[in-house]
Write a protein that binds this DNA or RNA. Sequence first.
DNA 1: CGCTTTTGACCTGCGC
DNA 2: GCGCAGGTCAAAAGCG
Length: 512
Amino acid sequence: MEKGWGLTVEKSDPFTNKPVFGFNLSPRLNQSPGIMFPVNLNGREERVAPPPADDKRVFLGEVDFFADKRRSTNDTFVVKKEDVEAATRDLNVNTGLQLLTVNNGNDQLTKDDGISSDIKDKKAKKEVTSNYSTLQMHLITLMQHQKNSETESSLENQTVDGKFEDKNQENRGSIVPRQFLELAPGDPELSHSSSEERTISGSPAQNKKMIGREESPASEDWAPNKAPKLNPFKPADQPTEATMRKARVSVRARSEAPMISDGCQWRKYGQKMAKGNPCPRAYYRCTMAVGCPVRKQVQRCAEDRSILITTYEGTHNHPLPPAAMAMASTTSAAASMLLSGSMSSADGLMNPNFLARTILPCSSNMATISASAPFPTVTLDLTQQPNPLQFQKPPPTTQFQVPFPAAPPPQMSQVFGYNQSKFSGLQMSRDRIEAASLPNEEQQHPSFTETLSAATAAITADPNFTAALAAAITSIIGGSNPSSGNNNTMANNNSTDVNTNSSNKTSSFSGS
DNA sequence: CGCTTTTGACCTGCGC
DNA sequence: GCGCAGGTCAAAAGCG
Ligand SMILES: [Zn+2]
């Protein structure tokens, strides 16, 4: 196996010019250009033709932190708190971005790093988001920004020689996502005891030491959404939190099948007729692990029955098969986007600035972030045909549509053998990208960034849709990018413009 | 037999 | 308080 591309982003101290902080973005081997890789679609494995060999796009996969102080043991980087803080501050100043540090159980920050202890208290916890997707998103944004304001190149490439061993990958899968749910929106101080006891069922203090991680993987009680009788989840005085509690990701896709296969196992637990839609809505719950809190709703679009709307909620508490990773990541990413510490509420996302910075000139697939919905919802619309009509003025609603940013797109790559092109491609100039020896090839844990893949994978099950999607993606990603590419290119600054699509606004889920 | 689906009852929040 | 709507429960039925 050859090597893939890797990217190291390093932040130098403006004064000393010494690198003080950085990230290693290691692409997944199977998503590296030039490598044929297997894709598992609904059980049958297929090999996807590799992109052009000269494709140097970088797939932003795993993110590892390091600092100059890193005394690399084989598998651990030690990051000094000061470094992180300084770098973060600096980046923040230069880019306006809030950089979130990560403690994900991968390049574990060790006990003496100062951070882990910091994480212990709630305040810090709020700032420390352990969600790769979020980070990645920020990073990408950052890069874009950097590129634009090509100031003192604080970004430099350097070969990645450190190994990021993925020892505890398990963690990343389960722990990470779960956390943000607890970080949730609302008001950090006076954490609501109620929620705590529900999930932790112990004194909050108890697990201080392991705050960065999930205590026991099988937290069995996925408390029902509503927090039924036993535990009045929210103290009436916090209406916002009540409503913002959970983020959702809904995927719209054309499919004749009653349900897209997303790699997970689901058990139907209910079905209702939803108002305003002749088609019933089915409720499913993930059964891949006992306590998995993830649920999804499946419903056909009222306007166009051929469109299947699948809405995910929650984060899996267990490792996922590759095919399922994507979707899980999507939801995770979405949730984190909405709930992450950096922006404590959906408002954060609604912030034009943020959006502007986040937008990437890509894809016709749009992520719709809806604030009007009862739950913060990110809608990924995969139904669009690559037609020119898609660019229209956005609806007047409180929705912003953004070309899928960081998190999601990767998926496509997984399925189609492309890298998430869009990003890398445009955001970073070649020189910033450097080949790096791939640490471990084939980490079985797809990076968190692989988001949509499940969606895609799933959707791909449907031949019809497959064709459509393939076409769409081709037009988007296709090296010779066509239509979508160009107009976006610029459009991306004002994201809110770019947008979308036809027939059905997201009405079904956003509004009433 | 173990699992999933079906389906009506039940719960909860919300607006009137 | 009442009724609606979204969501969940759980017993019974269905299935391999
Ligand atoms: Zn699950």
